[in-house]
Amino acid sequence: MPVCLQKGQKVSLTKDNPGLTKVVVGIGWDINQYDTGTSFDLDSSAFLLTGAGKVSCAEDFVFYGNLKHPSGAVEHLGDNRTGAGAGDDEQIKIDLSKVPANIEKIAFTVTIYDAETRNQNFGQVGNAFVRIYNEATGEEMMRYDLGEDFSIETAAVFGELYKHGSEWKFNAIGSGFYGGLAALCANYGVETE
């Protein structure tokens, strides 16, 4: 039975699962029935962060334009441009045994592609969730349903995996950003053009 988290809750992934190294982060959403005149394209990303809460290099930002971290620790399984259908819309594989020693957190975010031009925001997105399951068994370990507390935001941090001693834990964050991917990149120290 997966642990269902509320905003701000933390849970250990590895404490009760010794030897766990490979997990999949599934992220999903539905589009509310608002007609903005154009389709939605949401994009998930992972930021590999040092203790300072910043990336150490551009490759620490894993997204549709950089699908695999050089360490092999994080791999984005591809861009879903519609979000149609049930279940995960995008997935990111994590190999905890390969996470570089200088990385203390991996933040999972979702942005709305070209949100300003398309006049779209997270107030028009429903049923957003992040879940983590064991890659070997397929067993869902935890799930965080974000709820409907967004309005004008065009980017959101869904949650983060983080090291706590020898354990890996998950923190359900659910915080929104205005300014899309550029705002997230600035927050995490990724230089954009």
Rank of each mutant, 00 (worst) to 15 (best):
P2T: 02
P2G: 00
V3K: 12
V3C: 09
C4V: 15
L5M: 06
K10V: 09
V11D: 01
S12M: 09
S12R: 06
K15T: 11
V23M: 00
G26K: 13
G26H: 03
G26E: 10
G26I: 04
I27F: 00
G28W: 04
I31C: 14
N32D: 13
L42H: 07
L42N: 05
L48I: 08
T50P: 12
T50Q: 13
A52F: 09
C57N: 15
C57P: 11
A58W: 10
K68V: 09
S71F: 05
G72E: 00
A73K: 03
R81I: 10
D88Q: 10
I94F: 09
I94V: 14
K98P: 12
V99W: 06
A101Y: 06
A107Y: 03
A107E: 04
T109G: 00
T109H: 04
V110K: 11
Y113P: 09
Y113Q: 08
D114Y: 02
Q120S: 10
Q120P: 10
Q120T: 12
F122N: 03
F122I: 00
F122K: 13
F122Y: 05
G123A: 14
V130M: 15
V130K: 13
E135P: 01
E139H: 12
M141F: 05
M141G: 10
M141L: 15
M141K: 05
M142Q: 05
M142S: 02
Y144T: 07
L146K: 01
E148G: 13
D149M: 04
S151W: 05
E160V: 09
Y162V: 01
H164F: 06
E167R: 02
I173T: 06
G174Y: 01
G176I: 05
Y178N: 14
G179M: 04
C185P: 04
G189P: 02
E191Q: 13
T192P: 08
E193S: 14
E193R: 14
